[in-house]
C-alpha cells in the first residue's frame, strides 16, 4: 500500500490562486456560484466559459487532472441533458416522431445546463479543493465563521476536530495496513467471497482498529492537556491570516464578472434561458 497518501485533492503549486487567502477563496467560490446561476443567454454563457478557462490557466493545474475529476459527473450530465431535451416544450419544433417532440428551447437548455454544471465543478475545484490545503481551508473557515462564536456555535471545536481528523488519516491508514497484514499472517481471507463474506472478513480488521483509535484519542487528549489546551478561549494563533491587496482584487474579479453577466443578460440579444 502506498504510504504517500495525499489528503483531499490538493495539487501542489505556487500560482496566484494557491497563494490567495483561504477566506477570500471561500467567499470567491460563493460569488462564482452565484454568477454561474445568473447567466441566462448565449453571450453570458460564453463569458462564463472564458472565465473557467482563465481560472484553469491561472491555477496551472494540468487539464488531465481536471478531466479526471469530471468523470463521476458524466452520468448526471447525460441524465440532465436527456430530461431537458425530451420534456421541455417550446415554440420551435425541431423534430417530431410519434409522441416524441423535440424543441429548440429544450436543446438549448440542455446545453446550458451542461455548461453550468461543468463550470460549477471546475470553479469550486480550481478555486478551492485543488489549490487549498485542507488545513488552510479549516483555518479559513474558522476565521470566517468567527462572528458565529457569539451565538455559542462551537466553531473552534469544529475546526480543531477537522484538524485532528486530517492529522490522523495517514496514521490510521498505516495502522489498517499493519492490522490487515497481521490478520493475513494469521490466515484471514480478506479479498475473496461474496459481499457478505467480505464484510464479515472486515470485522477482525475494524475491531482492533477501533480499539487502537480509542487508545490514541485517550493519549492525545492527555498530551493536549499537558500542553495547556483548554478550548478556543484565550487562544492565539502563530500564523494570522492577513488580507493582501491581491486578495481583494481576486474577490473583486468575481463581482465584476457578475456585473458583466447581468449587463449582458439585459442588453445582449440571443437565446434567453427561462430560469
Amino acid at each position: 500500500m502506498a504510504l504517500d497518501i495525499s489528503i483531499g485533492q490538493y495539487f501542489e503549486g505556487s500560482s496566484v490562486i494557491h497563494k490567495a487567502d483561504p477566506r477570500v477563496k471561500l467567499i470567491s467560490v460563493i460569488l462564482y456560484i452565484t454568477v454561474i446561476f445568473l447567466a441566462k443567454n448565449m453571450f453570458s454563457f460564453a463569458l462564463l466559459i472564458l472565465s473557467a478557462i482563465a481560472l484553469i490557466i491561472i491555477s496551472r493545474i494540468p487539464i488531465k487532472i481536471i478531466t479526471k475529476g469530471m468523470k463521476p459527473l458524466i452520468l448526471i450530465l447525460v441524465f440532465t441533458a436527456i430530461l431537458n431535451i425530451f420534456w421541455l416544450q417550446g415554440d420551435t419544433l425541431v423534430f417530431e416522431f410519434g409522441i416524441i417532440h423535440i424543441y429548440l428551447e429544450g436543446i438549448m437548455t440542455a446545453i446550458f445546463m451542461i455548461i453550468r454544471i461543468t463550470i460549477l465543478l471546475i470553479g469550486t475545484s480550481v478555486i478551492l479543493t485543488y489549490t487549498t490545503t485542507p488545513i488552510a481551508l479549516t483555518d479559513g473557515l474558522e476565521q470566517l465563521l468567527e462572528p458565529l462564536k457569539k451565538t455559542k456555535l462551537p466553531v473552534h471545536e469544529f475546526s480543531m476536530m477537522m484538524t485532528i481528523a486530517l492529522r490522523f488519516i495517514p496514521t490510521l491508514i498505516e495502522e489498517t495496513d499493519k492490522i490487515m497484514n497481521a490478520q493475513k499472517a494469521r490466515g484471514a481471507d480478506i479479498g475473496s467471497g461474496g459481499i457478505m463474506q467480505r464484510a464479515k472478513a472486515l470485522i477482525p480488521i475494524l475491531i482492533p482498529l477501533f480499539i487502537s483509535a480509542f487508545r490514541r484519542a485517550d493519549e492525545l487528549s492527555t498530551a493536549m492537556e499537558c500542553r495547556c489546551y483548554r478550548g478556543g478561549e484565550g487562544r492565539t494563533r502563530m500564523s494570522k491570516l492577513k488580507l493582501r491587496a491581491g486578495d481583494v482584487v481576486f474577490a473583486g474579479t468575481f463581482i465584476v464578472l457578475g456585473a458583466l453577466i447581468i449587463i449582458i443578460n439585459i442588453y445582449a440579444p440571443g437565446f434567453n434561458l427561462a430560469y
Binding site: 489528503i7 485542507p134 488545513i135 484538524t163 485532528i164 486530517l166 492529522r167 496514521t171 490514541r216 493519549e219 492525545l220 498530551a223 493536549m224 500542553r227 495547556c228 489546551y229 483548554r230 484565550g234 487562544r235 492565539t236 494563533r237 502563530m238 500564523s239 494570522k240
Partner: peptide
C-alpha cells in the same frame, strides 16, 4: 510520538502549546 502531535505541519504543532497560552503571534 504519533499520539502527541496535533497538527499536520511540524511548526504548526510546535506552536500548539504557546497558542494555548495566548502568547502574541
Amino acid at each position: 510520538p504519533d499520539n502527541q502531535i496535533v497538527a499536520t505541519i511540524v511548526e504548526e504543532d510546535v506552536a500548539f502549546g504557546p497558542e494555548n497560552l495566548g502568547i502574541p503571534s
